[in-house]
Design a binder for these strands. Structure first.
Lengths: 113, 113
DNA sequence: CAGTATCCAAAAGGATACTG
DNA sequence: CAGTATCCTTTTGGATACTG
């Protein structure tokens, strides 16, 4: 190959330079698994998510949503109403990620000491 | 106070005070999913893990291993040999956690853009 | 070999007040 | 309502050198 080890022919989360490492870091971050889970049953509004994710601050929730949106795991739709309404929804990709994340949450709830 | 909502009768990762939230935070941290995956096929030594987890520094790896050990997801066994040999191994609990984490890693490797 | 010690940078998290 | 702005603390990450 042309480069040394910093190419990434196949996706390998163990490879430092593999872009999929970023995706793992995102999914494996404090709030992502909870946000994605909260969207499993359909679109939700910012305020709804905020209530559901006990303890999350608006800033952190906003950041998390943006990162997920950047990675195309969720979409953000703003409706020009008064009062303002914004809905977040899983993309197809996000719905796919939701599956293993649900298994993880379920395992945790069943096995936390 | 007598507490209002900060008790945790049933495990709910969405509840701020639920101890299982801590477990989720641990599993959903940068290196945990990789460490646990690296131990799926049997015990591994510190140096082996360090090579496998490209880019991890000894300090961070050490911290990660300690947190996993504290939560009883892995065990640490030191053999009084020269040179020193230390092995890390999944506990039964850790092996259980390894299942959903593997699904997550697999999904990531299959779906990272 | 398997870490720890040190020092440091960056990111994440968080409380609160304020705005379009 | 849905965020931003601000300020601050904590956590995490990281390079490197050193030790039992």
């Amino acid at each position: 190959m042309a480069t040394t080890t910093d190419s990434c022919d196949r996706n390998d989360v163990y490879a430092a330079m593999c872009p999929c490492r970023d995706m793992l870091d995102l999914l494996a971050s404090k709030w992502s698994a909870l946000v994605i889970g909260a969207l499993e049953d359909g679109p939700r509004r910012f305020g709804q998510l905020r209530l559901r994710l006990e303890g999350v601050s608006p800033k952190v929730l906003s950041q998390t949503l943006k990162r997920l949106e950047d990675r195309e795991l969720i979409t953000r739709t703003a409706y020009a109403e008064v009062p303002l309404r914004v809905e977040y929804e899983l993309t197809e990709l996000g719905a796919g990620a939701a599956v293993p994340l649900k298994h993880l949450r379920d395992w945790v709830e069943s096995n936390a000491a």
